[in-house]
Computed example of a mutant assay.
Amino acid sequence: MTSDISVRFEARYSNGQSAEQHDVAVLCAIQGLIIENTKSQPIAEWDWKDVKLAEALTADRPIRLQNRSLEGERLAIPDQSILSQLEQLAPYLKRDPVSRAGVQKFTIIGALFLCFALFVIYGLPRIAGPLAESIPMEWEEEIGAGVVKTVTKIFSANESKCENPKGLLALQHLTDRLAATVDTPYRFKVRVAKSKVVNAFAAPGGHIVILSGLIEKADTLEEVAGVLAHEMGHVIKRHPAKALIHAYGWSMLITALTGVSGSSGDLASGFALHLANASYSRSNEAEADETAIEILTLAKINNTGLVNFFKKLLNEGKAEGTRNDDDLVLKYLASHPTLRERIDAIQAKPKPPRGTPISEDDWQAIQNICD
């Protein structure tokens, strides 16, 4: 290697074979660095393409270089002013070029991530049903109880519970009357949470939450029964369990993308909001409506209550998400399909037989359940 001794500096050298360091002189040559011992004898040569920083620069420490091809070889240069000259000669002094192995590694990781993303977006919804069927009922009930607790925190001030004894008894009468019409492994657990929001939703494991704002908005218990039957339809079709599986898939995808892992509490809150905002697909909502009509018919409850409740929201413009300080209304069951489409679909069915009246005393008790 031909030298150009116009640039020469002192350094400490380690050959990587031992921890011992040696005082050396370093000369800049055309092809790279020539390292000489105290007797001016060359002991090592580094090509410029192999010269790189061994660690980040700091003002109070020597420049530390390493040889990319000869693992372990190091140079410690006390004079930091020499760095600007070395940077003009060593192309990789500031950054390490991406190796072929590195490119292959990132390509493989990228391909795996893409496959996982496609699975979450397209594959997971297709297999969510079979996966939901495989969840033990005890697990699903426990998960649902946690979701209900989270929802209560989100929508109900101070986690207010509506537990008037007469109201609870009347609500249980209604629940039992509806549940008796279906053959399902679920045990429906219905509760009312105090909130101005007009909404109701089903959680995994047969849990159903009705917000008191919905009861206040209803004119008859048949309307509440229609909404409750609809939520039972979601439970029977395992829509909440499928939504939970999908939510976990998206959580894993976001973690893989950002490197930030949300807590179980964050996931529960996000899933609770997903349920509360009625983010079910068009087919899911249609299935729940269909099941609700069957339940109401078999329970001999006039199913026009559900239609009347939908019409009320539609006529008041609440389905479009309008809201004010005195009357908070979520887009209850209004996303997919629209309320108008759902009203038309229900009314297109044969007219229901005359329903058995629901006790007026039960209706008054449920209206006062939060007192």
Results as ranks from 00 to 15, higher is better:
T2I: 11
I5A: 11
Q17T: 12
H22I: 03
V26S: 02
I35Q: 04
E36Q: 11
K39S: 13
W46P: 00
A56E: 03
Q66I: 00
N67M: 01
I82D: 00
A90L: 01
P91F: 10
Y92P: 00
D96M: 08
P97K: 14
R100T: 07
A101M: 08
V103N: 04
V103Q: 06
F106N: 11
T107E: 10
T107W: 13
I108A: 11
A111L: 15
L114S: 12
L124C: 06
L131W: 01
A132W: 02
E133S: 14
E138D: 15
G144D: 01
A145Y: 06
V148D: 05
K149A: 14
K153S: 14
I154G: 10
F155S: 10
F155G: 04
K161M: 09
E163T: 13
N164V: 03
D176H: 11
V182G: 01
F188E: 00
A193M: 05
P204H: 08
G205K: 10
I208V: 14
L211A: 04
S212D: 13
I215G: 04
E216R: 15
K217P: 00
D219N: 13
D219T: 06
L221V: 14
E223Q: 15
A225H: 06
A225D: 07
H230S: 09
K237A: 15
H239I: 04
H246V: 10
A247S: 15
Y248W: 08
W250C: 11
I254W: 13
L257I: 15
S264Q: 14
D266M: 14
L267V: 10
S269G: 11
A272L: 13
L273Q: 13
L273N: 12
S279A: 14
E287A: 10
E287D: 13
E287C: 01
L298C: 07
K300C: 07
K300V: 06
N302K: 09
F309C: 03
L313P: 08
K318W: 02
K318R: 12
A319G: 14
D326P: 00
V329D: 01
L330P: 00
Y332V: 03
E341V: 02
A345R: 05
A348I: 05
K351V: 13
R354L: 13
R354T: 14
R354F: 09
P357H: 11
P357N: 11
E360Y: 00
W363P: 00
I366E: 05
N368H: 13
C370R: 12
